[in-house]
């Protein structure tokens, strides 16, 4: 017997969520406002826009770039980015010869303070199972065709270190401001399943 047998007659998840919230509210353990605040924080305030600011700064400020690679936690802390799932941030740089990509095969560990909550593809069993075994093939299926001359390193986040990819700055962006650069940087590029492209 497993700890949590599946109940064939169980209610839809939305109803069970409502039930659990009601039970805890009646005990005075949670309140709707507290839950709302946490939800709003991850919908509005914490997300890939944080990581994109870090990338743009690293592309434009050589001293920050050095600090970021030397001690990621401290460097992103300069922006105030810290908290759960960001206890120890390690920044890994993509180059002309090495492409890095991050996964958590055991659950879905992810650098929340920099990227927010993980997207569906990151949590998908297909991603978690295959990126450690056939990364080039899977990345191709996800829209990133890497030249054979570029080696691939996969990072499986199995402990409390959170890996953050510093993508390559695309050519043709010399005149762009830090804010304009940040707008180009996608969540996918900061996990390593995409590259950053110059504006058309």
């Amino acid at each position: 017997m497993t700890a949590s047998p599946l109940r064939a007659d169980r209610a839809p998840a939305a109803i069970r969520t409502e039930a659990l919230e009601a039970l805890l509210t009646e005990k005075g353990l949670v309140n709707a406002g507290g839950l709302d605040g946490l939800i709003k924080r991850f919908v509005n305030d914490v997300g890939p826009m944080n990581g994109a600011k870090v990338v743009a700064k690293a592309w434009t400020d050589p001293e920050f770039y050095e600090r970021l690679l030397a001690d990621g936690t401290a460097a992103v802390g300069e922006f105030g980015f810290s908290g759960p799932q960001g206890e120890h941030i390690v920044v890994v740089e993509n180059s002309d010869t090495m492409h890095n990509v991050v996964v958590c095969t055991l659950c879905s560990c992810y650098p929340w303070p920099l990227l927010g909550l993980p997207p569906d593809w990151y949590k998908d069993p297909a991603y978690r199972s295959r990126v450690v075994r056939e990364p080039r093939k899977l990345l191709g299926e996800m829209g990133l065709d890497l030249d054979e001359s570029i080696d691939i390193t996969v990072w499986d986040s199995s402990a409390e270190n959170r890996y953050f990819i510093l993508p390559q700055r695309p050519a043709g962006t010399d005149g762009l401001s830090e804010d304009e650069l940040a707008a180009l940087v996608s969540r996918e590029a900061m996990v390593g399943v995409a590259q950053v492209r110059a504006p058309a």
Binding site: D124, S129, V132, R133, L138, E141, M142, E188
Partner: peptide
């Protein structure tokens, strides 16, 4: 939960 290397999950797309 221990999914690394499992077969059979198909592919995945970015939305």
């Amino acid at each position: 939960h221990d999914m690394g290397g499992q077969d059979g999950w198909g592919t995945v797309a970015i939305d």
